[in-house]
Structures are given as C-alpha cells and as structure tokens.
Deep mutational scan, measured.
Amino acid sequence: KNAAQIVDEALNQGITLFVADNRLQYETSRDNIPEELLNEWKYYRQDLIDFLQQLD
C-alpha cells in the first residue's frame, strides 16, 4: 500500500487525514475509527506525513 491509497481509503470512509505541527491528524464525523485503519496510519505515519505535506 502507499500513502495515496491510505488517504483515499480514509476519505471513502468519511475521514480526512492532514498534518498539523508535523503530526498526522484526522477529522471525521464518525463515532469511531476502525482499529485496522488506526494501525495502518501508525505503521505508515511518516509516509503519510510526507505525502500530505507535498500536497500543501
């Protein structure tokens, strides 16, 4: 998997990933985040941060 796929997957589930103060953050109206997504975000944290910062 790559960062773009993970960001896309999150968006499809109503979750927006973004970077604030060099930390990976998310916004969602969901009550909870599936644990497998959280684990994936932790595992790919630096890739996601790098990818999202390139988009800014």
Results as ranks from 00 to 15, higher is better:
8 D>Q: 15
16 T>A: 08
8 D>M: 15
37 L>V: 06
17 L>T: 02
26 Y>K: 01
33 I>A: 04
24 L>A: 00
3 A>Q: 02
3 A>L: 07
30 R>Y: 08
19 V>H: 04
54 Q>W: 09
5 Q>E: 08
15 I>H: 04
55 L>S: 12
1 K>A: 04
47 D>M: 13
19 V>Q: 03
16 T>C: 09
3 A>N: 02
28 T>Q: 03
31 D>C: 08
41 W>S: 00
16 T>D: 06
9 E>R: 08
15 I>Y: 09
55 L>R: 14
12 N>V: 13
9 E>K: 06
19 V>C: 05
22 N>I: 04
38 L>I: 12
6 I>D: 00
1 K>C: 04
26 Y>G: 02
36 E>T: 12
54 Q>V: 09
16 T>I: 15
1 K>R: 06
16 T>H: 14
4 A>Y: 08
46 Q>S: 08
6 I>V: 07
27 E>V: 14
21 D>R: 03
39 N>T: 11
45 R>Y: 15
47 D>R: 07
18 F>Y: 13
7 V>W: 07
41 W>C: 02
21 D>L: 05
28 T>V: 04
31 D>L: 10
52 L>H: 01
4 A>F: 08
49 I>T: 05
33 I>G: 01
39 N>V: 10
56 D>A: 13
39 N>Q: 13
46 Q>F: 07
22 N>C: 07
28 T>G: 06
13 Q>N: 10
27 E>K: 15
40 E>R: 05
34 P>M: 04
47 D>T: 10
55 L>P: 11
39 N>Y: 12
5 Q>A: 07
32 N>E: 13
48 L>P: 00
46 Q>K: 10
43 Y>R: 11
9 E>W: 07
2 N>D: 11
5 Q>V: 07
52 L>V: 02
48 L>F: 00
52 L>T: 01
21 D>K: 05
19 V>K: 01
1 K>W: 04
52 L>F: 08
42 K>W: 14
1 K>Q: 04
11 L>T: 09
9 E>I: 04
47 D>A: 14
53 Q>Y: 09
11 L>Q: 11
13 Q>F: 10
24 L>V: 06
3 A>I: 11
21 D>M: 05
44 Y>K: 04
26 Y>L: 04
15 I>L: 03
9 E>Q: 06
17 L>G: 01
38 L>Y: 07
19 V>A: 06
40 E>C: 05
36 E>L: 08
50 D>C: 07
11 L>M: 11
19 V>D: 02
47 D>W: 05
16 T>S: 08
54 Q>A: 13
41 W>Y: 06
7 V>A: 03
37 L>C: 02
7 V>F: 10
55 L>E: 11
